[in-house]
Design a protein around this nucleic acid. Sequence first.
DNA 1: CATCATGTTATAAT
DNA 2: CATTATAACATGAT
Length: 266
Amino acid sequence: MPELAEVFYYAKQWDAGKDKRITALDIRSKTRVFRACDTTALTEGLPGAQLRSTRTHGKQMLFEFSKGQWLTIHLGMTGELAAKPQPYEPAKHDHLVLHTRTHALVFTDPRQFGSVLYHQGKTPPPAWLTLPPQPMDEGFTVPRLREILQRHARTPLKALLLDQRWFPGIGNWMADEILWQMKLPPHILGGALDEKAVRALHRTIKKVCRVALETVGVDWDDPPLNWLFRYRWEDGHCCPRCEAELVRESVRGRTACWCPVCQRPR
DNA sequence: CATCATGTTATAAT
DNA sequence: CATTATAACATGAT
């Protein structure tokens, strides 16, 4: 389930092991999550180190260790991080477990769409030096959003919102939520928004990110009751605004959930 | 058994 | 070359 706020929440779980020596490590190095990782270097490099800092950007997480070791983790579709009390025995889908005296820092991911990268050096991995502004950052401005929409004027807004180059962290439920709050259908084209709508979209994106981080991101609380969020998967799911039946429809290969009555063009 | 899943990417087609 | 569609990845839930 991990999008912006979920990723933020999971990254925090490993704070339980902050500044504690890694005494041992369990790794299932043959699984797909390590497809782009030097697992030998990781296995040799991490024991003895201490977790120093944690940061997230969009759906990516970066963990810095005491001697210039860096772990980049993406949770894919089903990944989770947790800190478990010792003694801990790795479970079925645990791919990486960092043991400290008191806690086991666990990365688990049944579907293995997630990934782990290992980097050594004084500075963060190169990919972390040139990052686009996240939707809740200062650099995510109205002019920037306007330009994105203009440059991709023929792309359905739903697909555009899922593009991590422009909206890092926004995933399927947040994109549907933003469109629902905007009362716009998912297939409306980026270029179809007038100036007023662009500013409203900017506000809505910021708000959905902020509130998600304040709820899900803090303690896995649900977002507000009057959001689309919790009605989108329920049986006989109805729009919490107008009670019409929600529809599910594939837009550019992803399922969009939306209300055909209150989400209309313009 | 068939379908679907809060994600990304390689490859093919346009 | 840029955009778009499709398949693939591996597993579990319904």
